[in-house]
């Protein structure tokens, strides 16, 4: 419990740092931050909206520490201001609409990559140097070094344009209304296949290699040799004796790669025209919608910290030493 509480405290501090970076950055830029923000959006925003934006962003007047506190107050009450590009929508509304799609994409890809990668790592390590290991380990390493944008573009071209097997864009058939029906969910599933798989393929290799290397370390340990000497089944030694211990460093690396997967998801969405944070952000970048770009950092930091907390809880479940402490 103390362990989880300590982590929780750390995550609050980390979020604080991200919010502070967001506060400082526009003020480090030369010139008036409000002018920078609106320079690209001249004419598209009515003057009263401009006043509202200035107010919610805490740019107003006053000493820098007063600005900082009013900014922190609006961030912690969930008020991220208005979007310039999607005005009169607020940043919170806009990102709140996009976030579930990104979580669906990144979440499914993470779970699949971690499970498939770790399982293949166990098998590769068990028969080290065998045919499976010799083929799968170098090729997953190679895949891991290819950026998500490249995999997504190639997948889009091959399966979407050339073979016409899978849809090239959107999260579901635009002719359907979002509802809890088999047809709608089927359409969502069908549209998610290509983005999820191309994202997963990039990250599966990392987990495979981590698991394989941990597992090889475990196989030299006394308790595994003891298990084999006792005449336990291969399966039992493999999974209950070696893999369970080898999984701990893998879980740590899972926590560290979450940010990279989320980043990969942003790019994948742009390629597949998927209505998540990445695509919203792309529109925001093109139209220099600074409140939107800043808001996404906070929302994604929050998502990553929450996911890390879940990983910590999993760690407590896997490692009995932490439960006793």
């Amino acid at each position: 419990m103390a362990f989880v509480l300590r982590r929780l405290g750390f995550y609050v501090a980390a979020f604080f740092v991200a919010a502070t970076i967001n506060f400082i950055l526009p003020r480090l830029m030369p010139g008036n931050p409000i002018d920078i923000m609106f320079s690209q959006a001249q004419g598209t925003i009515p003057p009263e909206a401009r006043a509202a934006l200035i107010e919610t962003f805490g740019f107003a007047t006053g000493a820098i520490h007063e600005q900082y506190f009013s900014y922190l107050k609006s961030v912690f009450t969930g008020d991220l201001g208005y979007s310039i590009r999607f005005y009169p929508q607020t940043v919170g509304e806009r990102l709140g609409y996009a976030l579930p799609w990104t979580l669906l994409l990144a979440g499914t890809a993470t779970v699949m990559a971690f499970c498939i990668g770790s399982l293949m790592g166990v098998f590769a390590a068990w028969k080290r140097g065998g045919a499976f290991d010799a083929v799968i380990t170098p090729s997953s390493l190679a895949l891991q070094a290819i950026p998500p944008v490249v995999i997504a573009l190639v997948a889009l071209f091959v399966f979407g344009v050339m073979l016409r097997w899978l849809p090239t864009g959107y999260a579901y058939n635009p002719g359907l209304d979002p509802e809890f029906s088999l047809r709608y969910l089927g359409s969502v599933f069908y549209h998610a296949i290509m983005p999820v798989c191309s994202l997963m393929i990039v990250f599966v290799g990392g987990y495979l290699v981590t698991m394989r290397n941990n597992m090889i370390g475990q196989l030299g340990e006394d308790h595994v040799i003891m298990g084999l000497a006792k005449g336990l089944s291969e399966r039992r030694v493999k999974f209950n004796y070696a893999a369970r211990n080898a999984l701990l460093p893998s879980v740590t690396s899972l926590g560290l790669t979450l940010g990279a997967i989320l980043g990969g998801s942003l790019v994948t969405e742009v390629v597949f025209n998927y209505p998540g944070l990445g695509q919203t952000l792309y529109i925001g970048i093109v139209s220099r919608d600074y409140p939107l770009i800043q808001g996404q950092l906070l929302i994604m930091t929050l998502a990553i910290l929450t996911a890390n907390l879940i990983v910590d809880l999993a760690y407590v479940l896997l490692d009995p030493r932490l439960r006793r402490a």
Partner: peptide, 8 residues
Amino acid sequence: LVIPQLPL
């Protein structure tokens, strides 16, 4: 390490 790199 925990602040997501690409968004930052």
